[in-house]
Design a protein around this nucleic acid. Structure first.
Length: 264
DNA sequence: GACCAGGAATTGG
DNA sequence: CCAATTCATGGT
């Protein structure tokens, strides 16, 4: 198997409903609830299929090729080495959409709280070993604005509630087939989805590996690392990223993000 | 570029 | 303990 580091991957702001318990990590996404651990190079999991694991953690990507390509940019090398094995996940698009609608003016801890409350409020009970969880509701099932508000979502509740009525799983499968630019702009038609949130969905759920979400962390680290971006606006930073890293821009972003958040 | 958004977490009393 | 303040971030 290619290089994979479970810890780096889970802790890099792509996935929220996971709980470490001893060596194991319990993960919930949509109707799946499973546990996974990594000991040395060995990955073990219970509660889902190898296909799902390969897909979710991007284990079928040409990782060494991507890293080798990014390493041509010398400034990335420290991050590439330190967080070797960090993968871009390929998640369920619907839960990813709601996750990043929740991310507006929020933080990882609170996003996690919001998603678990939504699952508890609208999903079905699940259990593995003696650990309890809830499935994430399907599109169309988050259909009561007051109950969405009761999940501590605040002003985001109306975004989530409105998007819930506009999409279904098929909508996302169609987006997956489209090219990045089209998928990106279509997603922005949804309430609570502007460029950044759209890029997160493209990158983490729709196989659009050139997507380059620019949040405050990326903006900061880009301007520190590449002085020529100092006065750029976010969409100019994205263009800079594509000029520099092309189709691997998404991976560059993920390493930079993790580096920016953990370096100090 | 300014303005706005709701709640959790933390601090101060 | 409760009240006040801080924190954190992206959409419009």
């Amino acid at each position: 198997m290619n290089t994979f580091n479970l810890k780096h991957t889970l802790e890099s702001g792509q996935f929220f409903r996971y709980d470490p318990m001893g060596e194991w990590n319990y993960l919930a996404e949509r109707d799946k609830f499973f546990k996974i651990r990594q000991i040395g190079k060995k990955i073990e999991f219970v509660g889902t299929s190898p296909e799902h694991i390969n897909r979710l953690f991007g284990l079928d990507q040409k990782y060494s090729k991507i890293i080798k390509n990014l390493a041509e940019d010398e400034t990335l090398i420290p991050a590439l080495e330190k967080y070797n094995g960090l993968r871009i996940m390929q998640r369920d698009p619907w839960e990813t959409l709601v996750s990043f609608q929740c991310s507006i003016m929020s933080n990882i801890k609170k996003i996690k709280l919001n998603l678990n409350l939504i699952a508890k409020e609208f999903g079905k009970p699940l259990a593995l070993d003696s650990v309890k969880q809830h499935s994430f509701p399907n599109p169309g099932e988050i259909n009561d604005l007051d109950r969405v508000k009761s999940c501590a979502t605040g002003f985001r509740a109306r975004y989530i509630h409105a998007a819930n009525a506009l999409v279904d799983d098929k909508y996302f499968e169609n987006l997956r087939k489209k090219k990045y630019e089209d998928a990106h702009s279509e997603l922005m038609e949804l309430p609570g989805v502007a460029a950044k949130v759209s890029d997160c969905i493209c990158l983490f759920a729709l196989d659009k590996m050139q997507a380059f979400p620019v949040d405050v962390w990326i903006e900061r680290i880009m301007k520190e690392t590449y002085p020529e971006t100092k006065n750029m606006k976010n969409d100019e930073i994205r263009q800079f990223a594509w000029d520099r890293w092309g189709k691997n821009a998404g991976y560059a972003q993920q390493f930079l993000y993790h580096w920016a958040r953990l370096k100090d």
